[in-house]
Design a binder for these strands. Sequence first.
DNA 1: TTTACTGTCATAGAACAGTATGACAGTTGG
DNA 2: CCAACTGTCATACTGTTCTATGACAGTAAA
Lengths: 134, 134
Amino acid sequence: MIFQVDFKSGKPVYLQLVDQIRYAAAAGALRSGEPLPSIRPLAEELRVNRNTIAKAYAELEGQGVIETIPGKGCFLKKSDSPFNKPVRQKLLAAEIDEAVVMAHHLQVDREKFLALVKERLDYFERKSDAKKND
Amino acid sequence: MIFQVDFKSGKPVYLQLVDQIRYAAAAGALRSGEPLPSIRPLAEELRVNRNTIAKAYAELEGQGVIETIPGKGCFLKKSDSPFNKPVRQKLLAAEIDEAVVMAHHLQVDREKFLALVKERLDYFERKSDAKKND
DNA sequence: TTTACTGTCATAGAACAGTATGACAGTTGG
DNA sequence: CCAACTGTCATACTGTTCTATGACAGTAAA
């Protein structure tokens, strides 16, 4: 797993990492139980402060994506949804609304939008499957 | 059009307004060419500084949602996409990916996800249609 | 136990975001 | 022209966010 940070993007480094790890987990590049790079070496590699990595990991733990075992390290959680069904749906609906509103402003019609959604779903599924069979 | 701000939500007031106006435009509650409330009266009504409203409007202008005519006021733009087709698709794909990744972490499967997307699309279409026929 | 690794916490400083005030410029109608 | 309205800009204050440093605590193996 290779991470990249862009210092001039304006986006906080720790959030860039959070996103990358969430994406990697969703795309299957990181799998359940797999260990994440430990904080200090990764910080050195990315030329970033230890605590910046630590903050990213802490955020991911808060989101229920990873799990940290004191003295051992951080690992990808198996089942990573700490929320119940109605809360899940509400969170997800809000996220989807963002995309729907944007589609409207960009003048992308319903059919084009649905096609794009399916394309993105396929993209993640392909990536995930490819990883399984290696 | 009535706006509401929540001071204890943690979310910046000007961004709350940006979202509300974008949503209102997408849902048809605000229509092309329609004037937005002028800055000072709206600021007074919401008990907010003038510049907070001004910032929200400036942000919306940057996004191509509204248009401001010096000395006259701010108006909803007719066709509000200043981007070309490939850029549009890329922006939208990124937004959709956010939702797809979240769906994965919340363990919402493909079919459920697609159903939810359709439901949200319908929701906005209904709102928009209702407004047209009044 | 010692050493070398894991993550954690308290603290501090720099940069940024959010908001507020006052002075300014364009438009419209009396 | 003048008054009352529109949005704009420069500036400053405040609180928060982001990053960095150093000391600390748990785990594992020699």
